[in-house]
């Protein structure tokens, strides 16, 4: 009796593992193709798929880095600048807004909250045209500013911060700071922000990755080669002259583009996993 039960348990475990391995394979296989293909040259790739890496890794890298039409180094720099800028602005100002709506009582508090939530339901594409015209009027076309400044108003990040602050910031702490002689802004910067560190870390990662991968808005704003971000460069490489088209180079560029994200994820995965339950449970 016991034995059959144990056998059944083992069979079930094997089955579960097989399903999970299959799912993991589905998720990771494309990354594997990407990395393998970045080590092969154009003709090898055209011949078909291979499980074994090629020998053209350095060559592809060299081609990517030295292509005058594809300024990869400046692309990485631009992407970094925009992503870091967006992450910093989105988290700081969302936390500030969340704190304002949480800690203060004012007449239009509820409408303000609803308004922010409404923005959340608006897809980027809908407002894109208006946004581009606005940028044009402000003489900011072909600059990096419009790519990260709007992150100041990030409704999704705000909502996360608001939930977190509700669960983890007792008003007594704010009152204690006020009695200690802290100014209102000082209370936010010196007491509230440090308490919100875990939420800020999670949202900083998400915003960083999201901005890093954004193609749509940068493609509308940036035309100057030296100001292009990585996703635009990848796209422009794909649509390059057919005769010069080199698949190895494309794969290499994509690999270069995802490396920083993989590093960020690996370093901060602890925060990301913890962040899923943030705000839900009070310590």
């Amino acid at each position: 009796m016991r034995e059959t039960k144990e056998k059944r348990g083992v069979a079930f475990t094997i089955f579960v593992h097989m399903v999970l391995i299959f799912l993991a394979f589905l998720c990771l296989f494309f990354f594997y193709i990407l990395i393998i293909n970045s080590t092969r040259d154009h003709y090898q790739i055209q011949k078909g798929f291979s499980f074994l890496p090629g020998t053209h890794f350095m060559e592809n890298l060299h081609n990517v880095l030295n292509d005058a039409n594809i300024p990869v180094v400046s692309g990485i720099k631009n992407s970094l600048l925009v992503s870091v800028g967006a992450a910093v602005l989105a988290t700081y100002f969302s936390a500030l807004t969340a704190y304002g709506l949480y800690a203060y009582d004012f007449k239009l508090k509820k409408p303000a909250f609803i308004f922010i939530m409404l923005i959340l339901s608006m897809p980027t594409q809908v407002s894109a045209l208006g946004f581009v015209r606005l940028v044009e009027k402000m003489n900011m076309m072909n600059t990096l500013w419009p790519l990260f400044l709007p992150s100041i108003a990030a409704p999704a990040v705000f909502y996360f911060m608001y939930s977190y602050i509700q669960a983890s910031l007792p008003m007594e702490l704010v009152e204690a700071a006020r009695m200690d002689g802290c100014s209102e802004f000082g209370t936010f910067n010196r007491i509230v922000l440090p308490i919100m560190k875990p939420a800020i870390a999670v949202q900083a990662i998400f915003t960083f990755v999201q901005t890093w991968n954004t193609y749509f808005i940068p493609a509308l704003i940036i035309s100057d080669n030296s100001k292009k971000t990585l996703p635009i460069l990848i796209a422009s490489l794909r649509s390059a002259d057919f005769l010069k088209f080199d698949m190895g180079k494309v794969y290499m560029l994509i690999t270069v583009a995802i490396v920083p994200i993989i590093i960020v994820y690996l370093l901060l995965s602890r925060f990301i996993v913890a962040g899923v339950t943030l705000g839900g449970v009070k310590e």
């Binding site: 007792p170 007594e172 702490l173 204690a176 700071a177 007491i191």
Partner: peptide, 8 residues
């Protein structure tokens, strides 16, 4: 304060 309100 009742909850002490120490800065954590």
């Amino acid at each position: 304060f009742q909850s002490y309100a120490l800065y954590p």
